[in-house]
């Protein structure tokens, strides 16, 4: 039953999608659209075909290489960013003095549009991968920082009382109450960070680069090869969806207690394990 309703809604969505594309194609074919402004879907499709299936080489690499380069730069920047962000947040959560005197800088830092630092970053780190990684790190460190901090500072008085009455130690309190309590927020921060890291990487590639989807986009657009630039946009959308889905799945697996279904699944598993052992 569930699969049937899923199939029906999937069909409906894809139908509406195809309908929109079809209307666009027909309208463009009868001269309603300036081809320079919005290329026909069939042309974009043909370009995608030649890029992905025929391994057309552009800017010293196939699209797979550019895809991989962007993804790698983004991931490294993301890892740096969340490491810095969460470390600062944990320090700030456990040390009031640190929180009081360091948090304002983080906030001021956040008011500056991180993207505006791009020219400086290129001057410092050069035209290679480093500058892309640095910009991705810079733009993505703030959401994990602020979310981890609010998550760790959030407190539940009744839970604290319960932990006190059963005589839990500080570390038990941290691992069993404070951290699980904070994780949903932490993951919300990570999800924000991963999309901004992608954005930072692509923007840095606009600045100057030899590889990456961003530079492909720019080259195509400046040659007024609109089909090509829309094809690279589609590639970026695919990358965005991929990254977003990974983050979503990880969120659902790790923070299983957020929704009732996940909670039930895990507690059943734990029950079964207990039955086997005892």
């Amino acid at each position: 039953m569930k699969t049937v309703s899923f199939l029906v809604s999937f069909l409906k969505y894809s139908l509406s999608f195809i309908l929109v594309l079809g209307l666009w194609e027909v309208y463009a074919r009868y001269g309603g659209l300036n081809e320079l402004f919005l290329p026909r879907p069939s042309k974009i499709g043909a370009k995608l075909y030649s890029l992905f299936v025929k391994f057309e080489v552009i800017e010293q690499g196939t699209i797979y290489w550019h895809f991989f380069a962007t993804l790698a730069q983004m991931s490294i920047g993301f890892v740096y960013g969340i490491t810095i962000g969460t470390t600062l947040a944990v320090l700030a959560a456990f040390n009031e003095t640190f929180r009081r005197y360091v948090a304002p800088y983080a906030v001021v830092f956040n008011v500056t549009p991180g993207i505006a630092v791009l020219p400086l970053i290129i001057a410092w780190f050069g035209f290679g991968w480093e500058s892309k990684i640095a910009l991705a790190t810079l733009v993505c460190f703030f959401p994990p920082f602020i979310n981890t901090l609010t998550g760790l500072l959030k407190k539940n008085d009744e839970a604290i009382e319960l932990f006190q009455t059963i005589g839990a130690t500080q570390s038990q309190y941290f691992w069993k109450q404070q951290l699980p309590n904070a994780l949903p927020e932490v993951f919300a921060g990570l999800k924000l960070a991963i999309t901004t890291a992608l954005l930072g990487t692509i923007v840095a590639q606009f600045g100057s680069a030899t590889e990456g989807v961003g530079i492909l986009m720019q080259r195509f657009a400046f040659r007024l090869d609109m089909a090509g630039s829309f094809a690279s946009l589609v590639t970026m959308a695919i990358m965005g969806l991929l990254v977003f889905t990974i983050a979503e799945v990880m969120d659902r697996r790790i923070v299983f207690w957020r929704d009732a279904k996940g909670l039930e699944r895990v507690s059943k598993k734990k029950q079964r394990k207990l039955m086997v052992n005892g």
Partner: peptide, 25 residues
């Protein structure tokens, strides 16, 4: 209902990447 998949697609695409297209046009 019909706008939802489009919105998800829009959210996942790094929209800033359209920049060169806009500048060219």
């Amino acid at each position: 209902k019909y706008i939802k998949p489009w919105i998800i697609l829009m959210e996942a695409t790094p929209r800033i990447a359209v920049g060169p297209i806009f500048v060219a046009l």
